[in-house]
Simulated scan of single mutants.
Amino acid sequence: MDRVAGRKSALVWTVHLSVLFLVALWVVPTLGLFISSFRTADQISSSGWWSALATQERQLPAIRVEGEPELRDGLYVIEGTLFPRERSTLSAWGTSSLKPQAYQPGDVAELKDGMTLSVDDKGRYVLTSPDPLEGKRLPRIFATATQPPEFTLDNYRQVLVGANTGISIGQAFLNTATVAIPATVIPILIAAFAAYALAWMDFPGRALLVAAVVGLLVVPLQLALIPLLQLHNWVGIGKGYLGIWLAHTGFGLPLAIYLLRNYMAGLPRDIIENARVDGATEFQIFTRIILPLSFPAIASFAIFQFLWTWNDLLVALVFLGTGNDQLVLTGALVNLLGSRGGDWEILAASAFVSIAVPLFVFFAMQKYLVRGLLAGSVK
């Protein structure tokens, strides 16, 4: 009676709820980052991304009345607006920080020396004075306004092409792609040959090589950075794309060989033995049988390697450099954060640009991820 048809056990529901929680924990911040990248700086600073579609009320910074006075009917008049470019509606205003909502739109405030000030709901103000205003300290206006939802592409234009600031990550984006794509393909090509040899070819010392590969998985890459850089300088490849490709290849090979070898070792032996009986060479078996069958494992490693190389900063700084022509995306974002740390809208757009490609790669190949990672674990 414990397993009634149509009913799920408590363990199944627990697993489902846990998966939903983990998915929400990953998706919700990404969605918030995406929405924030299309918002203006004022909206981001005054409200959360979840209220992006709602009309918002916020306290505007104090604005001092300014302008050239005009003489009208014996009064000196200054006119202006609080919202030169925004689609905001004034809900309250005041002339003191202690009472920023003392007046309603259209009210007339009596100031010292006979001056009067009025502000309508569109933010247009009128200051009048019976005496000349030269040399006088004009009042400040503290306004509370409601602002409709507003979305803009200016953040992405500024990030990608440096509009209005000259600071962009377009070149860094290309540099990162130049590093990440070869640094993903090269270790796969080398590891596939090595994994096939360790899985299906008999030669002395094979077990020791497998043990060495497993041991290299736990070696921190920071341990090899300086010696490897010195070796690159001695060989003559120094700081450049070839050097960083080889560095990422070396750091990624142990995991690649381990995953692919486990997967290839779990393939049916009868297929390979029959191919050998039919006269196929080892290279033909590898290219026509092993590689097509090993695509899930190759795809799973490609995801990990691409994400690692795309988000890498340490290896890029050591083996590539910090010049504008060599700076990768993560380095450009660090510089952008240092020089424009208060522009949250620019940082949100930059961050989403940096994760857009990894997200696309992950979702395009994620169906092979679990199958490749579990390869060889069950016989």
Rank of each mutant, 00 (worst) to 15 (best):
Y368P: 14
F151V: 07
E79C: 13
L75E: 15
G331D: 03
Y76D: 06
D120I: 02
K112E: 12
M365S: 15
G266E: 04
L221H: 07
P84K: 02
I141D: 05
R7C: 13
E273R: 15
G114V: 10
I271A: 09
A192M: 09
I272P: 15
T330K: 09
E150Q: 07
E110R: 09
P204T: 00
F304A: 02
W49G: 08
I237P: 01
L53A: 07
F295S: 08
T95S: 04
V218T: 08
L253H: 03
A195Y: 07
A5D: 13
Y263G: 06
I169Y: 03
L217C: 05
L337A: 15
E57T: 15
M115R: 15
E68L: 15
A92C: 02
V126Q: 09
V179N: 03
G74E: 09
L75C: 09
W200G: 11
V219G: 00
L153R: 05
V15C: 12
P149G: 07
G166E: 10
P296W: 06
T322W: 09
S294G: 04
F363Q: 08
T146K: 13
F286P: 04
Q305W: 08
D121T: 04
K99S: 11
L374D: 11
K239S: 14
S88T: 04
S18F: 01
E150T: 13
Q43A: 14
G321L: 04
Q101K: 08
P204R: 12
L221Y: 15
T330N: 11
V179D: 00
L228N: 05
L231K: 04
E110V: 10
A302K: 02
L117K: 02
A145I: 07
M201H: 12
G94V: 02
